[in-house]
């Protein structure tokens, strides 16, 4: 973020178009590079959350699973705030 971006924010003006371009590119390239469609990514997110919530209670509203990309490496980043761990009997291991 630049000084101008901050001033714009304070004055309630729009972001500069260059920073919008940067953000849009980073998002679209993360998808292009991983060859994942947004639908598949959504499905993966849901399944990851399901699995994780078998073991710990997470705050789904604040959780975020996203693709981030840096230096041509794409990483799947999950940020899932844990409320508390669940008792072992409830760990989701059925049978």
């Amino acid at each position: 973020m630049t000084l101008r971006d901050i001033l714009n924010k304070l004055l309630g003006q729009q972001k500069t178009s260059a920073s919008t371009a940067r953000e849009r590119l980073q998002l679209v390239l993360a998808h292009d590079r991983s060859d994942l469609s947004p639908e598949l990514l959504d499905q993966m997110k849901r399944e990851i959350l399901e699995v994780v919530s078998k073991y710990v209670e997470i705050n789904i509203d604040e959780g975020a699973v996203s693709l981030e990309t840096e230096d041509r490496m794409t990483a799947l980043v999950a940020n899932l705030p844990i409320k508390r761990s669940l008792p072992t009997t409830n760990s989701g291991v059925d049978s």
């Binding site: 971006d5 178009s17 260059a18 920073s19 371009a21 940067r22 590119l25 980073q26 390239l29």
Partner: peptide, 12 residues
């Protein structure tokens, strides 16, 4: 800041 900078493009 209405055009991607040189650094923006080389970073991406």
């Amino acid at each position: 800041q209405e055009m991607l900078s040189v650094d923006d493009v080389t970073d991406i």
